[in-house]
């Protein structure tokens, strides 16, 4: 049986989340608690509070704290071409279909600091589709979005990502898409030009356009089943018939209410396609 301390931690976290939702309209109550508790505890330390409970009055009376709280709870950790086999499958299996459309709309939800969406844009550039593509990259974390929009990364990291880029079927050199200086690498304007970054909260915001591909990786793992269902419903609504859905490699569509609406393209890589007809009841 869980001890008293863990009970206290659970109460503190519940109250903190209630305050955040009611005071600021950001509802994290549908997030998986174990990792959220870690992040809340980290945030408390960072803001000089001895407990998560001590964060609550600060949250209630100090509006300027909100961006930092959102950043602390949503920890945007990402890489370029993470899971190269997924990007390879997009290149080999999705691109031939996407190429037949006059215009391509893509929604990348949970873009963090942009590494993943730039990977996708580079891939589309190499197969000659970027010029007719519009990518909407969204996240709840404004600090991360600002970084993503800047598109400046430590040059050392680009070296590190090169191996994955090549495994993903990249045909040039990854650095070719950046201008280098002072140890930093800035993504080329030509790549960035097709991406719009925007604040969007998967918990509370609705669908904003019809897209041919939704990429949302390593975001659903943070949500409980109910919230996962809501978000997968959003993606289903946003996708055109025959549109594609790409989830993180440890995220599973199988248990969701939306599962019926999709058929696997490659189940192990979590690549799915929305059924063309009316889904079976």
């Amino acid at each position: 049986m869980p001890g008293r301390a863990s009970n206290l931690h659970a109460i503190e976290l519940d109250l903190f989340l209630e305050a955040l939702a009611r005071r600021h309209g950001y509802d994290f109550r549908g997030y998986a608690r174990a990792s959220l508790r870690r992040r809340a505890a980290g945030l408390a330390i960072k803001l000089g509070c001895a407990t998560v409970a001590e964060l609550i009055p600060r949250l209630l009376y100090d509006d300027s704290l909100l961006p930092e709280v959102l950043s602390g709870l949503s920890v945007p950790v990402t890489e370029m071409f993470r899971d190269p086999s997924v990007f390879k499958a997009i290149r080999e299996q999705l691109v031939p279909v996407l190429a037949t459309y006059p215009r391509i709309n893509i929604w990348q939800a949970g873009c963090a600091t942009g590494e993943e969406v730039y990977s996708l844009a580079i891939l589309l550039e190499e197969v000659g589709l970027l010029h007719k593509t519009q990518i909407y990259a969204t996240d709840i974390n404004d600090q991360a979005l600002a970084k993503a929009e800047e598109g400046i990364f430590p040059a050392k990291l680009i070296e590190k990502y090169t191996e994955n880029y090549l495994k993903a079927g990249g045909t040039k050199a990854l650095v070719a898409y950046f201008s280098l200086g002072y140890g930093f690498a800035k993504i080329d304007a030509a790549i960035k030009q097709r991406i719009s970054f925007a604040h969007h909260n998967l918990v509370s915001d609705g669908v904003f356009c019809e897209v041919n591909l939704v990429v949302c990786r390593n975001v659903l793992i943070y949500f409980d089943r109910q919230l996962q269902d809501r978000v997968l419903g959003l993606f289903d609504t946003s996708l055109s018939r025959g549109g594609f859905l790409c989830l993180g490699t440890k995220e599973n569509l199988a248990f969701s209410a939306a599962a019926n609406a999709f058929q696997p393209v490659d189940a192990s890589l979590r690549l799915y396609r929305k059924r063309q007809g009316v889904p079976p009841p």
């Binding site: 998986a32 870690r38 390593n218 793992i221 440890k250």
Partner: peptide
């Protein structure tokens, strides 16, 4: 535990994964 994710235990004894740092 799968590689490259943190594994966590929830209060209801279900597993969670996180891609945190």
């Amino acid at each position: 535990a799968p590689p490259d994710y943190h594994l966590l235990m929830e209060a209801d004894h279900t597993f969670s994964l996180s891609a945190d740092a």
